[in-house]
Amino acid sequence: MRATRDISDRDDLDVLLRRFYTAAFADPLIGPFFTRIAGTDLEVHLPRITDFWERALFRTADYGRDAFAPHAVLHATRPLTAAHFGRWVQLWHAAVDGLHAGPRAERAKAQGERIALALLRRLGGPGADTRGAGGGFVPLAALELRSVA
């Protein structure tokens, strides 16, 4: 059964982000960045990232943090590649599609793709592989994404 209700408020974002991070933390490719390298505490991270997405989708929250800085620290410890960002986007799409459908859900997925590409380009510099030549970023139009359990 496909979700039919759009993302409507902060509570929806909380449920969505918990679903996404549960999958991301468990993922063999990107999970270690959250668990072992960054040591992310979801209960500390969740209000911050919810502010980020609430600002992105509803323009109702303040988010004054530097979203690039923590990624730069991770990248310096263990390089983040197009494959990592591609997997993040796959999991993000699956989480959104598993719970929501509508204009805000589509905007959340598109915004996730833009963020992933922007971070990849900024971290990798002018020569960053964003086309997937070496197992890199996966074009989402070529994938059938399924919801994460």
Score class of each variant (00 low, 15 high):
Ala23Cys: 05
Asp27His: 10
Asp27Lys: 06
Asp27Gly: 07
Leu29Glu: 06
Leu29Ala: 05
Ile30Met: 06
Gly31Ala: 04
Gly31Pro: 04
Pro32Trp: 03
Thr35Trp: 00
Arg36Ile: 03
Ala38Tyr: 02
Ala38Ile: 01
Ala38Glu: 09
Gly39Arg: 08
Asp41Met: 00
Asp41Ile: 00
Asp41Leu: 00
Asp41Trp: 00
Leu42Arg: 00
Glu43Tyr: 00
His45Gln: 10
Leu46Arg: 02
Leu46Met: 04
Pro47His: 06
Pro47Cys: 08
Arg48Gln: 07
Ile49Val: 14
Asp51Cys: 01
Trp53Ile: 02
Arg55Thr: 10
Arg55Pro: 00
Ala56Arg: 07
Leu57Arg: 02
Leu57Glu: 01
Phe58Asn: 07
Phe58Lys: 04
Phe58Pro: 02
Phe58Gly: 05
Phe58Gln: 05
Phe58Cys: 05
Arg59Pro: 01
Ala61His: 06
Asp62Arg: 14
Gly64Tyr: 12
Gly64Ile: 11
Gly64Cys: 11
Asp66Tyr: 12
Ala67Val: 15
Phe68Thr: 14
Ala69Ser: 15
Pro70Lys: 10
His71Gln: 13
Ala72Gln: 14
Ala72Gly: 11
Val73Leu: 14
His75Lys: 11
Ala76Phe: 11
Ala76Glu: 15
Thr77Val: 14
Arg78Gln: 15
Pro79Asp: 08
Leu80Met: 14
